[in-house]
């Protein structure tokens, strides 16, 4: 069985050090920062729950071989469409989705589809009415079409650039 390991510990230590420095030199702002921290965390807890459930369901219903088929190097247009739809429908901050993408990558998800997913997230369905109000319908449609085109292009370029990258497949047990 693979040994459990925390990721991003050094990054966390860096942020903790930043907090300590701020509490020495600018203590007044620490309660405000802690408030913001709490608000952000509170807002993304439901997304974390969704990500855990989705990852578990993907693991349960899709065998690694199927993940490879739908999202691996030979996934073709289907994989691309799933990645784009997933990106457009996903909510919350990008980092909330890292655990799911990380898990799927270990099962064969290709890098190009991660790039597709990440850029397609620029299409924000709930914010479309706001965007139309700000820029008008025509401009909004044009921008969102370009976002999807560039999401596809990014995936192609990433696949090309990462083609020599070693495949990381997880051995579950």
């Amino acid at each position: 069985m693979k040994k459990f390991k925390f990721k991003g510990v050094k990054f966390l230590l860096f942020v903790v050090a930043l907090f300590i420095l701020l509490s020495i030199f600018d203590f007044e702002n620490i309660p405000r920062i802690m408030d913001k921290f709490g608000i952000i965390l509170y807002k993304i807890i439901p997304i974390f729950a969704l990500v855990i459930v989705l990852t578990a369901l993907i693991n349960y219903f899709l065998k690694p071989k199927q993940v490879m088929k739908y999202f691996g190097k030979d996934s073709g247009k289907k994989g691309l469409i799933y990645a784009l739809i997933g990106g457009v429908l996903s909510h919350g901050p990008m980092y909330a989705w890292y655990p799911m993408l990380d898990d799927m990558r270990k099962h064969g998800l290709k890098y190009g589809l991660i790039a597709n997913f990440m850029y397609a997230r620029a299409v924000k369905l709930p914010l479309l009415p706001f965007m139309i109000g700000l820029f008008g319908l025509t401009f909004t449609v044009i921008v969102n079409v370009y976002i999807l085109i560039f999401a596809i292009l990014q995936g192609k370029v990433i696949d090309f650039l990462m083609k020599n990258e070693k495949e990381i497949l997880k051995n579950d047990d």
Binding site: F6, V15, L18, F37, Y95, Y98, D102
Partner: peptide, 19 residues
Amino acid sequence: KNFLSLTPMIFAVIGLVAI
């Protein structure tokens, strides 16, 4: 478990965003 392994990274990002 996979989610838990990424929690230090997630807390760090939230901390940085709050700052």
